[in-house]
Design a protein around this nucleic acid. Sequence first.
DNA 1: CGATACATGTAAGAAGTTACATGATTGT
DNA 2: ACAATCATGTAACTTCTTACATGTATCG
Lengths: 195, 195
Amino acid sequence: MKAGDISKLGYALLGLLQQQPSSGYALRKIFSSTAMTTYSDSPGAIYPALQRLEQQGLIRGSIEESSGLRRRQMFRLTPHGLAALKKWINRPLVRADVIRGLDEVMLRFAFSQQAVGATGAVNLLKSLLVELTSYIPELREQLTANKEAMPTSGRLALESGLRSYECLLDWTKYALATYVRQKKMRQERKGATAS
Amino acid sequence: MKAGDISKLGYALLGLLQQQPSSGYALRKIFSSTAMTTYSDSPGAIYPALQRLEQQGLIRGSIEESSGLRRRQMFRLTPHGLAALKKWINRPLVRADVIRGLDEVMLRFAFSQQAVGATGAVNLLKSLLVELTSYIPELREQLTANKEAMPTSGRLALESGLRSYECLLDWTKYALATYVRQKKMRQERKGATAS
DNA sequence: CGATACATGTAAGAAGTTACATGATTGT
DNA sequence: ACAATCATGTAACTTCTTACATGTATCG
């Protein structure tokens, strides 16, 4: 990672701060107690990451002296930070994102609605659909080509990878359908109030 | 990671070398061309990793001067290396492996049959089954509890995580069934030759 | 003769891990 | 008094990334 770049943890922090200004401690709690446990809640990772984001002008911390306990710093996104978050979410998906960075894609999607709206979320899903649709057949071919030469456990492990992509494809279609359904419901409501 | 420990990449190398002695270059090709693309094929990662493994006495390299091209070093597992590989594969699964280290679990399983036999592979699957069976309901609960407070994309992202675990559970059962089927076939063959 | 494949390596820098340090407040 | 929770931070260490360096052989 080059200087000036933002790490995955950095983006996770930006996304959370966009939803709600928080202290480093509160962010750590989110990482340790929710489904975001894939990210480290160690202070040695989070506080330096926050410092970097602040140096880059993406977040701004303000010390709260009032609250009685030890001094606490609340961080919030700057306009630059919001722009960086949007840019990250809207970045076009490429094959490499699907092969090596699926968790990051899901993180982008999780924050997409609040940061770039339903349209942006749907765009992300559509391009994920495209990538998966082209990648899965290739993977399947690789598997059928090599299956003879592998021990059972190796073949099964490969199959597990294939299945997880197929499962993700199902989810992508379901997620798209969910947005279509929501849009239809909004339109119906609008039609009802108009008549 | 403490000194003396082995990184994920290190274990991937040990596993591949157990299957077949190889040069650093050949290992890089495996990472760049097969489904193991999740691992970096950069020389800056692999050659230092091989040096570490050799210093730890887990692999041994021998220089081949003969083959005409630039000198090449073939690495093979030492008895110590094989023991470390087996220990890693047999390590009892814990919740954290399922939450943060599924790819490593799959890597262990992929190598399990050659390193610790079908029985070891089945043991790994069984304990994965146990962990998933206890984790999935908890995840599902978390989802239903929080779904009201989240934007659609956040909720869908969580659902994607849940679905992928459910998919993995299906695969685990399928993989176990595959081993049961194989065992039955071997026994039938034995019965046939005996009669 | 230049590109490509084979083949190995190092140097600089980024980011994460573990472990430690500090300090205030609240509950037992 | 002591533990637990809130709250922030640093230091040492490990590993990976990117980029560069080097060298041989083959093919067009």
